[in-house]
Design a protein around this nucleic acid. Structure first.
Length: 796
DNA sequence: TTTTACTTCGTTTTT
DNA sequence: CGAAGTAAAA
């Protein structure tokens, strides 16, 4: 039993409890993955359970993969037969097998958020709903919530008759669902809801899975929504061997339907449940845990627990307040460099966390400038870039001819002279005949389309049919290459958008290699499988160890991860906790507080908390006080953070972070609205608009204590931030002579090197407001016009 | 039909 | 500040 000896008493208790319902309340860093993997090992080794009788559900593919690897390490065999999966991919697997029973066909498509919005737009048009009064996103959110609560369109409609908006939403829901059905598509929420529906309506199918999965484990149970709760309940209703692991203090997904009651009321749902609490933390030093405990203590409705560790007290927590977000970013970048140089840290030891994705911009800018290798997780998803969505739409059209959305997306890509008029005509025939848009292409006479337009449509149709044949015969890799070939997509792009073509081509190449990788990894690669993997992939899934880069991400993305050195940035009231949550009241604040708890507990040794007095948000400068969560951390846990009352123009570069103060009394330092309200900036809720430039240019130091002179105002031109496009790691390593935007050193006659086009001679440099436009005659690739910052030309 | 210029508006967080 | 959507022009 040697492998279990390393576990503490509580952990062992959880591992050895194999029968009946078990709730493991696992505080942050308490070794819950270890418990789960050991429990799986114990089931296999000691209880004699067959690996295929075990189901483990996680929330991300990364977590699933990690769990499988760790079980593998523990026992070395059979782990590949354990079904370790996310909720969503598990449901897709089940639906692919049985979905015909509930009226869909098995090659269904999965729609992402963009797709949903497109569909909803169509629905609103059809139902003559003014999307300015009721926004698509709002309708979709309500539908999503309904689905997460297992409320179908019919049930939703009940009792909405009196309410104008609700009845409209109900109508949209029904129409939206009908459209999805017609397109043979599911959205994310459907995957769960339809699986529950399948099991409820077809108990014989559920029976199969009862036999198959006799031991069920669910990770991150606090993040389950009602639909997922019900799904788990159904699956476990056979054996009742259900083990859930979670931490109510880390429930941060309410916005996507997570119901914290699922974990709080587990013992009510399963009165015979055994409960094990894991409070010993193996991750962090005590100071960090003290801070986390101090913050989370302010929440009501929680299971009482308190983290402790034997890792020693550790360093104090650093707190730094800056005048601007720019300075904050500068500090983080410089401190990362310091940690590498002075503490012997690797870049990958550090992570920068923030509340909102938009905060990554300034940090990225700084990291590029300092040549710090970094990676941003999340934000604009790779698969939601236009060129990628276009090509995926081709793949989806080939895979699922019923997917009208994808077909209509690509019908005029590249430009074939097929506009809205032709699309509408074809769609009308499709609607009349009750067939798909694609199938309607073979009834052009009925649509009243003749002549050249008809020819174009026919050639589109035959192209898709040919692509289908290629997919059948030769598979996805050949297919995507053929699509690129036949559409001449890359050339088309270079013609259209000179400045972005480079990046887009890179993305396309990446897509091709991803598809190639998929086909190599799978024994029987299929287009359906490929698209499914693409639909369910999360950005965090591709974060692998071994890359020596600083990770930048939202706190949400960071859940489950740990880092030696963590920067928690943007700790300002109004940003974190967000303005939205403040208006929601206690419940909103408590969710944000849990988020703060998650953020703090990511740190193993060092934690730096920072905030800015002024920050540009949505084109307006906001002046926020230090986050209330910072104030909930006792003073004694901080180092002695500096405060400086800067005078305008004073050189502060030497001792910016020196001095002593009590941060608690400081707040934003200048919160009297009357002093500044005539400037129009946001002050205690008053806002100014972007076109009235503030005297405070946030990229420059300013004096918050004296009135700025009118002459200090900047013109909008100068106001524009210096932007350097993200350079790849390779380029970062190459050295210093990369021409950046705004300050291009290029001049006519220079010999330059381009990543893609090779060597060439600069013909001309035209200064433009944003960037220099450079014309280069390449030795082999011909003449190109490009923006200096973008082209990343290297002077040779 | 397609491109360009102007206007509006603000998801905090994601499978 | 930007993205995204809309109206007008080519």
């Amino acid at each position: 039993m040697a492998i279990y000896d390393k576990l503490n008493d509580k952990q062992q208790e959880a591992v050895f409890c194999t029968k009946g319902p078990l709730l493991i309340l696992a505080g942050a860093g308490s070794g819950k993955t270890s418990v789960l993997t050991h429990r799986a090992a114990y089931l296999l080794d000691e209880v004699g359970v067959k690996p295929y009788n075990i189901l483990a559900i996680t929330f991300t593919n990364k977590a699933a993969q990690e769990m499988r690897e760790r079980i593998d390490k523990l026992i070395g065999f059979g782990s590949d037969q354990i079904f370790v999966s996310t909720f969503h991919s598990m449901c897709v697997r089940i639906l692919r097998r049985h979905v015909d029973l509930v009226g869909y066909s098995n090659n269904f498509t999965i729609y992402d958020n963009d797709d949903q919005k497109s569909i909803m737009k169509e629905v609103c048009k059809k139902l003559e709903i003014d999307t300015k009064k009721i926004k698509e996103r709002s309708i979709l959110n309500q539908i999503s919530s309904a689905k997460n609560e297992l409320v179908g369109p019919e049930k939703f409609a009940m009792g909405t008759a009196g309410d104008y908006i609700l009845s409209k939403v109900a109508a949209c829901y029904a129409e939206y669902q009908a459209t999805l059905h017609k397109n043979n598509a599911f959205d994310f929420d459907d995957l769960i809801m339809k699986t529950v529906e399948l099991f409820t309506e077809h108990p014989e199918v559920l029976e199969n899975y009862h036999e198959r999965w006799q031991y069920i484990m669910v990770d991150e149970y606090q993040d389950t929504n009602t639909a997922q709760f019900e799904l788990v309940r159904l699956l476990a209703s056979g054996s009742r061997n259900i083990c859930v692991v979670g931490d109510d203090d880390q429930s941060i997904y309410k916005f996507r339907g997570a119901n914290i009651r699922n974990i709080l009321d587990f013992e009510k749902h399963y009165p015979d449940a055994k409960v094990v609490k894991l409070e010993q933390n193996y991750r962090s030093v005590q100071t960090i845990l003290d801070a986390a405990n101090a913050v989370i203590r302010n929440n009501s409705s929680r299971k009482d627990k308190s983290l402790w560790s034997k890792n020693g007290e550790g360093d104090k927590i650093h707190f730094r307040q800056f005048d601007t977000a720019m300075e904050e970013a500068e500090y983080v970048a410089s401190d990362v460099l310091r940690s590498v140089r002075k503490d012997g840290f690797k870049f990958s030891d550090s992570a920068v966390l923030y509340r909102t994705n938009s905060q990554s911009r300034m940090l990225e800018e700084r990291f590029v400038r300092e040549n710090i290798p970094y990676r941003i997780v999340g934000g604009i998803n790779f698969y939601s870039r236009r060129e990628i969505k276009d090509l995926i739409a081709y793949l989806k059209t080939v895979d699922n001819g019923a997917d009208d959305l994808s077909t209509r997306r690509i019908i005029n890509i590249p430009k074939r002279g097929l506009g809205a008029t032709s699309v509408t005509k074809v769609q009308m025939v499709a609607d009349e005949m009750g067939i798909s848009f694609f199938d309607a292409l073979s009834h052009l006479d009925r649509a009243g389309i003749k002549g050249s337009t008809a020819d174009k449509l026919r050639s589109f149709e035959s192209m898709i049919l040919r692509l289908r044949a290629i997919n059948q015969a030769e598979g996805p890799v050949k297919l995507i290459k053929e699509i690129l070939d036949v559409t001449d997509y890359i050339n088309q792009m270079e013609v259209e958008s000179e400045e972005e073509a480079d990046e887009r081509i890179g993305n396309i190449e990446e897509l091709v290699s991803k598809i190639t990788a998929y086909c190599e990894e799978h024994a029987e690669p299929t287009l359906t499988g490929l698209l499914e993997e693409i639909a369910l992939i999360a950005d965090i899934d591709s974060v692998t160890e071994g890359e020596d880069r600083v990770l930048l991400m939202t706190i949400h993305s960071a859940k489950g991860l740990e880092f030696t050195n963590v920067y928690l940035t943007g700790m300002e009231d109004g940003l974190f906790p967000s303005f939205m949550s403040v208006t929601e009241g206690d419940e909103g604040i408590e969710e944000e507080r849990r988020l703060a708890y998650v953020a703090i507990t990511r740190a193993k040794r060092n934690l730096t908390i920072s905030s800015a007095r002024a920050r540009m948000i949505n084109g307006e400068t906001q002046y926020n006080a230090v986050s209330r969560f910072v104030n909930e951390i006792p003073n004694s846990l901080f180092d002695t953070p500096p405060v400086r009352k800067k005078q305008y123009g004073e050189d502060y570069s030497e001792d910016r972070y020196e001095g002593t103060r009590s941060f608690r009394s400081f707040d934003s330092g200048f919160s009297r609205k009357s002093d500044y309200s005539d400037e129009g900036d946001t002050y205690g809720g008053f806002k100014r608009t972007a076109d009235e430039p503030s005297a405070y240019d946030i990229s420059k130091p300013y004096n918050p204590y004296s009135r700025p002179k009118a002459s200090a105002r900047k013109t909008p031109e100068e106001d524009k931030p210096f932007i350097v496009k993200a350079a790849s790691l390779d380029n970062l390593k190459k050295g210093s002579d990369i021409a950046a935007g705004g300050s291009s050193k290029l001049k006519a006659g220079d010999r330059v090197r381009h990543v893609k086009f090779g060597d060439g001679t600069v013909i001309s440099v035209v200064k433009e407001t944003r960037d220099d436009k450079v014309t280069v005659q390449f030795d082999t690739a011909g003449q190109k016009i490009m923006y200096a910052s973008f082209a990343r030309l290297q002077i040779i």
